[in-house]
């Protein structure tokens, strides 16, 4: 070691420091990784095992993993209407959220001026009360003798004994209401970044406001559209509160089925299989969607 010259030693020291900083990244990752391990990987493992339980098991006799892949077939056979309904409701609600959310986010980003921050706070204000309470309030708003239904009956939009509560309309409306902020915020973030001068330039180059929107504003807001639709569609497809509180058994969604299989009938095998199927379908759809919209071309 005595042969080491001063500069060489200095180089070694600095190499040690770099070595130290290489581990810093992992330390910083650790809390998140532990959290994910405990609350995602472990439950996921137990979910996968549940989906492979012997379907004849019960709370009394216990459950055995006998790799009964038939659980998946049973789940699809028995519950495909709920599965499809979930995708349909979530898709419809996402579309409605996109339309309402885009207009709202556009107005906040470009037209709100000094009210911008207040409006953003208002968008997230509902989060200050519980999800359950808010959905229960919708039950009151849409109730058979409530003011919304009587007004609509009065206007002959609804028939004499037409109702809103316990219809698919109520369920979709509930989902739209509950997930709208998840659509608005990413849309706002990406609209707000658009340079207004680009729209002016489009106008200068013979684009009407309508064309300027579709050729400039819309493509530049696509990252927000993708993020917003995913953040809305994914939780909406697995939601069961809205269907349970605002719908009738005819509007049962896959979330309701999974919930009742797990808690009431304790058919863990089918519940596990159904959960996995929903997950795989959603992942598949998201991959196709992202591939189709292709965000890597966007700045």
């Amino acid at each position: 070691m005595a042969a080491l010259t001063a500069p060489a030693r200095a180089a070694e020291d600095s190499a040690k420091r770099v070595g130290g900083s290489r581990w810093t990244g992992y330390w910083l990752l650790a809390p998140g990784a532990i959290w994910l391990g405990l609350f995602f990987v472990v439950p996921f493992y137990s979910l996968v095992s549940a989906s492979l339980f012997d379907p004849n098991g019960s709370v009394l006799t216990g459950y055995k993993v006998n790799y009964h892949v038939g659980n998946f077939a049973t789940a699809v056979k028995d519950y495909h209407p709920e599965l499809l309904r979930s995708l349909w409701y979530a898709g419809l609600a996402t579309l409605i959220c996109l339309v309402i959310g885009y207009v709202l986010a556009y107005a906040i980003a470009f037209k709100a001026g000094r009210w911008r921050n207040l409006l953003l706070v208002l968008v997230i204000a509902p989060f200050f009360t519980s999800f359950l309470l808010r959905t229960l309030s919708w039950k009151l708003i849409l109730a058979d003798h409530g003011f919304v239904v009587s007004t609509l009956q009065h206007l002959h939009v609804l028939g004499h004994d037409g109702r809103l509560l316990n219809t698919w309309l109520a369920v979709v409306a509930g989902i739209v209401y509950n997930f709208l902020p998840f659509m608005v915020l990413p849309l706002y973030a990406s609209l707000e970044k658009i340079d207004g001068r680009l729209v002016e330039a489009a106008g200068d180059l013979y684009a009407s406001p309508f064309t300027a929107f579709f050729k400039v504003t819309w493509p530049l807001s696509l990252p927000g559209v993708v993020a917003g639709t995913l953040l809305t569609f994914i939780p909406a497809a697995g939601d069961y509160i809205n269907a349970q509180l605002l719908g009738s058994p005819g509007e049962r969604m896959v979330g309701n089925v999974i919930q009742s299989l797990f808690t009431s009938s304790q058919d863990y095998a089918t519940a596990g299989a159904l959960s996995l199927i929903l997950m795989i379908i959603i992942i598949g759809m998201v991959l196709v969607y992202i591939r189709k919209v292709g965000t890597e071309d966007l700045v």
């Binding site: 002016e200 330039a201 200068d204 493509p219 966007l298």
Partner: peptide
């Protein structure tokens, strides 16, 4: 006249090129 209806074009200070 609307900007898109006049025989005038502009080179903007910031260029305002369409990034996409």
């Amino acid at each position: 006249a609307k900007p898109y209806q006049r025989p005038v074009n502009t080179v903007f200070q910031s260029y305002a090129l369409f990034p996409h």
